[in-house]
Amino acid sequence: MRLNGRQFARYSRHLLMDDIGVDGQHRLFNSHVLVVGMGGLGCPVTLYLAAAGIGRLSICDADIVAESNLHRQILYRDADCGRLKVDCARRALKDVNPDLMVDTHAEPVSAEILSGDYQLVLDCSDNLAARSLLNHHCRARRLPLISASATGWEGQLMAFDFERQQSPCFNCSIDPSSPEGRADCDTQGVVGPVLGVIGSQQATMAMAMLLGYGHPHGQLQRYDGKAGQWMNFKLQANPNCDLCAPFRRC
């Protein structure tokens, strides 16, 4: 796909940048990103990626919009309550950028959905089972994965560049068989803008990866909104990880 005159105007602030330019904008146009979870993180992530000119988004969420979502899930409006999130999100994202292609999956993420031709997978889900499934498939297919989460005033991101054989994976640090944590948005609440901070950072990392700038991977980035503090931690490949240790021995 080539830029037309209208698109030159639309993306002019990207085109001015030496490290994006016309080639980078074409690269974004030709990208296909899977976003799993269209809640508090999926909303800001997809809004920024749609506006930025990503060519195609596949969005996956089985839920309907509830009134308790509206303080933080910024794609949805009062009248959307009771409707499928992916349908409401598709309409809102197409309003932002009519050129965007949006595929919707109103079901939990599955191996079939993960078999698509994506350049990048964004984990915006809210449960360990989905995160483990994404990690497993992305590791096996060597697809980059950016996993994010938030609760209360806190959020975190982990980026995995599985094209690098020695990359750690999600399961290296978090045992997928451990009990589901009690600290989710339904039990502990969450501050809406914290999801905006983490979602914006996830979208920034996504663009950097898609443009070939290899955002720092193998890192855990933690944000404490109450203290206004970011802290970075290095993730180590676990030599006993059931999932990824065999790959690293190859």
């Binding site: 508090g40 889900s125 449960n127 989460s149 969450v190």
Partner: peptide, 10 residues
């Protein structure tokens, strides 16, 4: 030594 509480919501 740092302890990090879990954040699991999305």
């Amino acid at each position: 030594l740092a302890f990090l509480p879990p954040v699991t919501g999305g």
